[in-house]
């Protein structure tokens, strides 16, 4: 299958290793990856902060870039939820019937990375080896918007050597919420402190998720507290093999 990778704006600048891992896993499974350099952002930051009009050109740009793609894979559940939950509404708000139609035509071909592996490709074992104690943070958008359920867990359970530790209060938000973490920094920090305590309680060396946004937030505190717990996007774990160095 020819897979078009939408890396997302923050992964592009801050987490290039996640993109490389996605390429690695999908190539290993025999798929052809393309990267359209015209891509920018899904528009979520603007939309969720209330800059609704400003989000529309960003959305239009995304649709234009990927209109003819066979399949789009995105290593971020929150960007995919932005598309599924809000793109049609944004296009309608703009009164652009063609954009509404284009969005509706494109979205069924857009997948979050772990969802793509399990729901579209039917793969759970991607041949990874990762001999570490890991805990999985279920991001809000992956649970409540994409309804990924246990998909990421199923993928992790197939990884050789991986010791998966459940985290308490898995349903509760880490407190990131995009600009919420800045506009309501105190509350966000308090939520983060609770979540970090739960993560530390697992005794895991690595905390993973399908969203680098939550992981960036969690790692911000894990690092500040000088813990030795690392974070890694699920793609990086799935890319790790016995031969190769891990991401």
């Amino acid at each position: 299958m020819r897979v078009s990778l939408f890396i997302t704006c923050y992964n592009d600048a801050l987490f290039p290793q996640t993109g490389k891992a996605v390429v690695n896993v999908l190539e290993r499974l025999g798929h052809e990856i393309e990267f359209r350099p015209e891509q920018t952002c899904c528009g979520q930051m603007h939309w969720n902060t209330g800059y609704l009009r400003e989000a529309v050109p960003i959305i239009r740009h995304f649709v234009k870039v990927y209109q003819d793609a066979e399949t789009v894979v995105i290593p971020s559940s929150s960007c995919v939820s932005m598309m599924r939950d809000h793109y049609v509404k944004a296009a309608e708000m703009d009164g652009d019937a063609k954009l509404v139609a284009d969005v509706e035509a494109l979205l069924p071909r857009v997948y979050e990375f772990s969802e793509f592996l399990v729901r579209k490709l039917g793969v759970e074992d991607v041949g990874a080896t990762y001999p570490h104690k890991v805990t999985y943070h279920a991001s809000c958008h992956s649970m409540r918007s994409l309804h990924l359920g246990d998909i990421p867990i199923r993928l992790l359970k197939q990884v050789r050597g991986l010791d998966l530790q459940p985290v308490q209060n898995a349903q509760e938000c880490c407190g990131f919420g995009g600009t919420f973490s800045i506009k309501n920094a105190d509350v966000s920090s308090a939520m983060l402190a609770d979540k970090v305590r739960m993560v530390l309680n697992t005794g895991a060396e690595v905390c993973t998720a399908v969203d680098n946004s939550c992981l960036m937030h969690l790692y911000g505190s894990l690092h500040r507290q000088r813990t030795f717990v690392r974070t890694a996007h699920i793609a990086e774990i799935l890319a790790a093999t016995a031969e190769g160095a891990e991401a």
């Binding site: 800045i182 920094a185 966000s188 937030h217 790692y219």
Partner: peptide, 12 residues
């Protein structure tokens, strides 16, 4: 607000 409780990894 971010850095009151969190570090941020520099852009690679």
């Amino acid at each position: 607000g971010w850095t009151q409780t969190r570090d941020l990894k520099a852009m690679p």
